[in-house]
């Protein structure tokens, strides 16, 4: 059974086709890169997978079931935006996650917060944008989920934090979990992918295991991306 299965997913926003007959199957224990230029449908696909959007046609299933309360328990989503409220402190949002998610590990969260130098008593509203993103990422990575949907997890953080985050992803790797990661910074992360999916204007342009692509095309994923999506 695939952890994520998209069957002929089409999503229209009025006249605009954000996704066009997308077919995708993700196995457990894989780290998959979702790559494409702005507006290619990456965020739409991720939102469909966590139930924030409903497809116009086609079906989507998470661990065999349709998106709902059940799937939200095992899916950890990191949106591109900051969703943190103004009044809580870092320790409050940690408690919040612990309260709502059975598979949230408080210890992991605290470890990571310390490693990145984020004080638990700080008010969320006082954190810089980069730090807010780090907090959100930590909250997601501290969950023992079966499917992680990360929308631009390293875009807004400094290179040192970036390395830490990439390392955390590797360290947390589990054969029973899958990560679908959408990013622009391909060069930094292409080494952690098992496979990649290129999305262009709502359609899958290319997909496959990374080393096979490197062998076949004789270039890096970053290089291939530039070629496929040349302006």
């Amino acid at each position: 059974m695939f952890i994520l299965e998209c069957s002929n997913i089409t999503k229209n926003y009025g006249a605009c086709k954000a996704l066009d007959s997308v077919n995708l199957q993700l196995e457990k224990g894989k780290i998959v890169g979702l790559l494409g230029p702005n507006g290619s449908g990456k965020t739409t696909l991720l939102k469909l997978a966590n139930g924030l959007l409903s497809p116009t046609s086609g079906s989507i299933s998470i661990a065999g079931g349709s998106p709902g309360v059940h799937s939200k328990k095992i899916v950890a989503y990191l949106p591109e935006r900051t969703y943190l409220n103004e009044w809580m402190k870092v320790k409050d949002i940690v408690a919040f996650f612990a309260d709502f998610y059975a598979n949230f590990s408080r210890e992991k969260a605290i470890d990571m917060l310390q490693a990145l130098g984020l004080p638990q008593n700080a008010k969320l509203s006082s954190l810089s944008k980069g730090n807010k993103e780090k907090v959100q990422l930590i909250l997601v990575m501290a969950r023992e989920a079966e499917l992680y949907l990360l929308d631009e997890p390293i875009g807004g953080v400094d290179p040192a934090a970036r390395d830490y985050i990439i390392n955390t992803i590797i360290r947390n790797y589990s054969a029973s979990a899958t990560i679908l990661l959408s990013t622009h910074l391909i060069q930094d992360v292409e080494r952690i992918f098992d496979s990649v999916v290129f999305l262009n204007k709502g359609k899958i342009a290319l997909q496959g295991p990374v080393d096979d692509i490197r062998e076949e095309k004789g270039c890096s994923i970053d290089e291939l991306f530039r070629e496929v999506f040349k302006c």
């Binding site: 224990g29 894989k30 780290i31 390395d163 990439i166 390392n167 590797i170 360290r171 790797y173 080494r191 952690i192 992918f193 098992d194 990374v210 080393d211």
Partner: peptide, 17 residues
């Protein structure tokens, strides 16, 4: 495999392979 993957910064499946 996990430690080596972390040290090298690559996917554990790649290291395993």
């Amino acid at each position: 495999v996990r430690d080596l993957a972390e040290q090298t910064g690559v996917n554990p499946n790649t290291m395993q392979r």
